[in-house]
């Protein structure tokens, strides 16, 4: 006897529905716990923003303009803050009603279940993305930085090499530490932050060498480990890691005339020399 709409036996379907109801309740409580944490965090931020907003000119003269409360730059933010406070209180109350305040002090509840591979992978991607944008791009050639980033992601999610996560994390941490050390040692002005791309002449070669070395090591490791799994996959992976970033860099630099974030990186300098000086395009 089957339920025609779903193709499942009716009993099983009912069981699934019961399970879904149970899961639904659990899910709802989980969302209320998220809501509670979110609201508390938001209320703290809003309190700080309120303090800032109250320092805006409400009356008196600013920039030669006689201020009235209704043209004050604080007016609209204050209306929004009031509305946000009210919404937060309402959400807070509804989450407390459903035991949303439970596990508030548990770090695991803030970061997600660490035993869940999906949760760990999501944090890993966020970490890699942060490293790519805040450390690799401002310090090294864009092609090399991009190839390392793509290589790290495909090792884990496409080739699915054993122990890929550990190797990728280790390689990226090592590279990030090397880049920070090189930049802080070789920069003329030590006060310049690692996010600044203006003081790179002294360090760019060493940064490129470190990133290039990491890239080659990761690619060799991918080829060795990946070949045991599936050779065509390794081929496609190499195209995605080495060729696609090169095409992107060339398309943006030479077709769309978008300069790369670090214009004097090794690869982009070589491409500039090749395209403009040797081919004369």
């Amino acid at each position: 006897m089957t339920d025609n709409a779903s193709g499942l036996p009716i009993n099983q379907n009912n069981n699934d529905q019961n399970n879904e109801k149970g899961n639904g309740k659990n899910n709802e409580q989980t969302y209320r716990q998220y809501d509670f944490k979110f609201v508390i965090a938001l209320l703290v931020i809003l309190a700080y923003i309120l303090k800032l907003t109250l320092s805006f000119p409400m009356s008196g003269s600013y920039g030669g303009v006689e201020n009235q409360w209704y043209v004050s730059p604080a007016l609209f933010p204050l209306i929004l803050l009031t509305a946000l406070f009210l919404c937060c209180i309402s959400l807070l109350m509804s989450s407390i009603k459903q035991q949303g305040h439970q596990h508030f002090f548990s770090l695991a509840h803030w970061l997600g279940n660490k035993d869940n591979q999906q949760v760990r992978d999501r944090w890993l991607i966020i970490g890699l993305l942060i490293g790519y944008v805040y450390l690799l791009i401002p310090a090294t050639d864009f092609y090399l930085a991009t190839a390392v980033f793509v290589c790290s992601l495909t090792s884990i999610f496409y080739l699915q090499i054993d122990q890929a996560r550990r190797t990728v994390i280790a390689a990226n941490i090592l590279l990030a530490a090397t880049l920070v050390t090189i930049r802080s040692t070789l920069n003329e002005d030590p006060s310049i932050s690692i996010l600044d791309i203006n003081d790179l002449e002294n360090s760019i070669l060493y940064c490129d060498l470190s990133t290039g070395f990491t890239l080659i090591s990761l690619v060799i490791w991918q080829v060795i480990c990946g070949s045991k799994i599936d050779k065509p996959r390794v081929m496609y992976n190499l195209i995605a890691v080495l060729i696609v970033p090169l095409i992107l860099v060339m398309a943006f630099s030479f077709l769309l005339y978008v300069p790369m974030p670090v214009e004097y990186g090794s690869v982009i300098s070589f491409l500039n020399w090749l395209i403009y000086e040797q081919l004369g395009i």
Partner: peptide
């Protein structure tokens, strides 16, 4: 495969 082109999409977002 999604896992092959999504990293490239991430790079495109950044660019």
């Amino acid at each position: 495969p999604t896992a092959l082109f999504i990293p490239v999409v991430a790079v495109l977002c950044i660019l």
